[in-house]
Every structure is written in C-alpha cells, then in structure tokens.
Design a protein around this nucleic acid. Structure first.
Lengths: 190, 190
DNA sequence: AACAACTTTGCAGTTTCTGCAAGTTTGGTT
DNA sequence: AACCAAACTTGCAGAAACTGCAAAGTTGTT
C-alpha cells in the first residue's frame, strides 16, 4: 500500500531537514546580514552536508524566503460567496503560519534588513496568487481570459498582505485568520 | 550648469551599453536557453568586458528580465478619475514599450521558455505596483494603511498584465495603450 | 589646460551552483 | 527475514557567478 504523500518517516525527516535549513539560514542572516552567510555555514548549522542544501533549495535566497503558502496544499474552493470560500480554503495555510509565528517574524525582520529579498517574497506570493486565480476560474467555470479571476485573486492577495502585516505588529497575538477576516470584511465595504 | 539626468554623451552611452547587454543576453538565451549562456558571452557579444556586465546588472537574470517600467520615470498622477489619471501618467512607459516591441516579444518568449525567470518578472512588476500604490496614496492624500491605494494599484497591475498579453498576440499591432485603455474600461463595468 | 567625477577594465579571490557516481536509508514485497 | 527499488545524502570536481580593489580611460566643468 503506497502511502499517498503524507506520513512516513521519509516525509517527516524531509520536513525536519527543510525546517532546520530555513531556521539556520534565517538565524545566521539575522545575526550578520544575509550576504555574510554562506550555504556551507547554513548546512553545517542544520547538520547536513553542503551539497544537501541544494537538494532542498535552488538558491540561498530561497531558503530565506521560503514558500509562503506551503501549508495550503491542493486547495479546493467550496461554493458560495468568494471571500468566505477563500477563508475556509486558506484556513489551513493561515493556521500553519500561525504555528510558525516566530519564524515568520524572524523572516520578516530579515527581509526588512535585506531589501533585495523582498522581490523574491513578492514573487512567491504572486505565484500563489496565480494559482488562486486559476482555482477561482475553475470553481466558477469562467472561460480563460475572463478578467474576474485574476482581479479577485489580486485583491485577495492584497488583503492578505495587509492582514499579515497587521498580524505581525499585533501585540495581542490575535490569530492571523482573524486579521484576514477583518481585511476581507473591509473589502466588502468598498 | 550640471545637466539634470537626461542628455549628455555619458547617459546616452550608458543607455546604449545597457540595451546592448540586454539584447545580447536575450538573443543568446533565445538560441540556447537561458542557463546555457554565460555572463562572459553576453559581455563579449555586447562589446564590453566581463566585469562591466556587473556594473549594469546585479545578476544575469536581471539582464534578461529588465525593468518593466523603466520608461515611466518619476510619474506624477494628475487629478480626476483614477483610471484616466493612470492612463496619462503611464502613457510614456507604454510608448517606450511599444517602441521596443520586438525586444519585448523576444523577452516574453525567453521567459516562457525559462519559467524560473517568471517570478522575477512578476517581482519587478510588483515593485512597480508598490510604487504606484504609494503615488495613489499621495495623490488622494490617504493615510498610511488605507486599503484603497494597494487594492487599486493591484487591480491596475492585473489589467495592464492582461493588456500586455493581448498586445503581444495582436497581429494587427494595435498600440499597447489601446489595449490598456480597453482593459481599463472593462474594469469599470465590473 | 587642468581638475573632478564617472566609467571601464583587469585581477585575484570567494561563493554559488551543477553533474555525476558512489553510499545510505526507507518502504514495500516475497 | 531477506530482498529490492526508490528516495535521499554525500563527496568530489569543476564551471560559472559575483565582489572588492586599484589602475587606467572618458567625460563634464572651470
């Protein structure tokens, strides 16, 4: 019985290694600045060989930026009003981010201190946005080229971005999903 | 009288060199694939030393992606309805792109053939989008954190992206700005 | 002509990143 | 348990990317 793609020591170990590389990269970059850290040092700090680093990330920057929506997996949008559908479909991703709050704060600090990383984060978010637009088009069975899906995805992306920023500065640590909900309801009032 | 930042052999030569590097990079990448071209080859084809390449671009990819809005300079948004203001403010950029049509088609082909470049193009567009959001906020004197500017800029970006795609496939070669106008008017009907 | 500002270039050196060919671990089968 | 295949790690060798610096060469100004 071939395990789908979830559990199994293999997958667990992979996640661990990946996380170890990411946190090592971020911690070192936070201490000395992103370009004063080498992939060799990151690998050493994560306890793997230098070559292994590139089994996980194509570039050093990728380890620093990470995949913003790695928690979302294959998202299937339920029917109903779009914003509510997005909330439920993206909830797992937001929960994952919530769990990794400290890591995210660290990451945002590093990106803030190393502006050349920002475009990469934006690019990652944009990729997620495009996938989202595709999913919206499928859900509402809209023809290719219809402007609604990309526009909606674009707006949702902007709202999430704002929500994440507020969440990051929120001393009360209200869960991220609350901030997203708030941003979405603001959207409906425009 | 210190020339502002426009004419002068210096600036002209810089533009020429930059353009030569970009076209050389794109042509070579188009022939053999982006990762089968070295910065040394690009420099040689452009007639400059290998070291000079990095005076113009931080990375090889930057030469391939270019700056989507290099023609816009410091844009000042006139008053009035936003979409019309955007049209007039961005017109110079669109004209520049129109002039470089062949270069842009080549670039889009290269990016299509080398998907790892797409995120970088998206990131460049996103940077432009953020600058635009800032300009919108200033124009309408909206407080920092107001959702309108980023959302509007985001939507405008999406519209321009669609317009550029149609323009690229337009056999009649209708000017880019017409396509943008069209996309914008579609927006108003949503 | 002379001077300052900017640009190109070469050189030396480090870091990034890749391909390949071992080894090692894991998951599943008989 | 013994076995096998797929996945993962690792080391090595090497190409290519990238940086800092200082010496030229250009351009703009007085």
């Amino acid at each position: 019985m071939p395990r789908p793609r979830e559990t199994g020591r293999r997958e667990i170990k992979r996640r661990q290694t990946r996380l170890a590389l990411i946190t090592a990269a971020l911690r070192l970059a936070d201490e000395r600045g992103a370009d004063r850290v080498t992939t060799d040092e990151i690998s050493a700090a994560a306890g793997v060989s230098p070559r292994t680093f590139f089994n996980y990330f194509a570039t050093k920057e990728d380890a620093l930026v990470g995949d913003p929506m790695e928690g979302s997996g294959e998202l299937s949008l339920p029917p109903g009003p779009l914003l509510e559908a997005l909330l439920t479909a993206l909830a797992p991703a937001f929960e994952q981010i919530q769990k990794d709050r400290d890591l995210w704060l660290l990451r945002m600090r590093v990106i803030g201190a190393n502006p050349h990383l920002l475009p990469l984060l934006i690019a990652a978010a944009a990729s997620a946005e495009q996938r989202l637009a595709q999913d919206i088009a499928v859900r509402d069975s809209l023809p290719d080229g219809h402007p609604y899906p990309p526009v909606a995805a674009s707006v949702a992306n902007a709202a999430v971005r704002v929500a994440v920023c507020r969440w990051a500065e929120d001393r009360d640590s209200r869960p991220l999903i609350d901030h997203v909900r708030e941003a979405f309801t603001i959207l409906t009032t425009i």
